[in-house]
Design a protein around this nucleic acid. Structure first.
Lengths: 115, 115
DNA sequence: TTTCTTTATCGTAAATTGGCGATCAACGAT
DNA sequence: ATCGTTGATCGCCAATTTACGATAAAGAAA
């Protein structure tokens, strides 16, 4: 079974893992980078990516699923842009993760055996 | 093919995506959280996780693959600990990612259409 | 040596992922 | 009403992921 036992973990952990998973593909990172410049029509994103239109569409869907981007209908095309609130929230999530990881180790008291 | 076209993207992007992918599972985040407290014998990690020994072992392997943790043989058992250099490097990677994403949008000039 | 403990690996199964071409639906334009 | 453009969705395939039990390997202990 490729399904995660997500029930067994805290909601925070699952939420952060979901965002991390969405970031876990270079193509999706590239899309975010593109959208960081400016909001973009889907076709423009496809033109800038070494992937087919359908594949890019799937990646967009996944980024939309975790809320990092939004798409707005603009006549016959879709204008994609970052959701800065979601981006900021994700950033906080990772900051808290790394802070939590670092806190007990900067003391220089633990992990000495492995250092 | 579930294989990514990683050649088509920049090395930086691929490297960060690999770390993000490793973080993309709540179990692996939980393992990092556990190891943040102190270095741990594999068995202790297994005891604290709602997953089987073999499954935990696989997750450890994946975290090891991206360098976030190390394992040192200690008699018949293995002592796992965070690799703080790799953790710091990952943190920098995400910081740069989010800084890069935020830079062009805090100006309040772009993405207005989607706001 | 035999046994126990510990952890990695193997084998298996099911689900998901990543990729693509083809098609469909929606809209503007003719 | 028809055509062209745009982008989501469908169907397909292969590879990867997640999970587990069972087994193997390595060392401690008896």
């Amino acid at each position: 079974m490729a399904e995660r036992k997500t029930d067994e973990f805290s909601g925070d952990l699952v939420a952060l893992a979901d965002v991390a998973k969405a970031l876990g593909h270079p193509g999706r990172l590239e899309i975010l980078r593109i959208l960081a410049g400016r909001a973009c029509i889907c076709g423009d994103i496809v033109d800038r990516m070494p992937l087919s239109q359908s594949t890019v569409s799937q990646h967009l869907k996944e980024l939309k699923k975790v809320g990092l981007i939004r798409g707005e209908i603009e006549g016959p095309r879709i204008c994609y842009c970052l959701d800065m609130d979601a981006v900021a929230s994700a950033q906080r999530g990772f900051t808290r993760l790394f802070d939590g990881i670092a806190c007990c180790n900067t003391e220089g008291e633990t992990n000495e055996k492995c250092g």
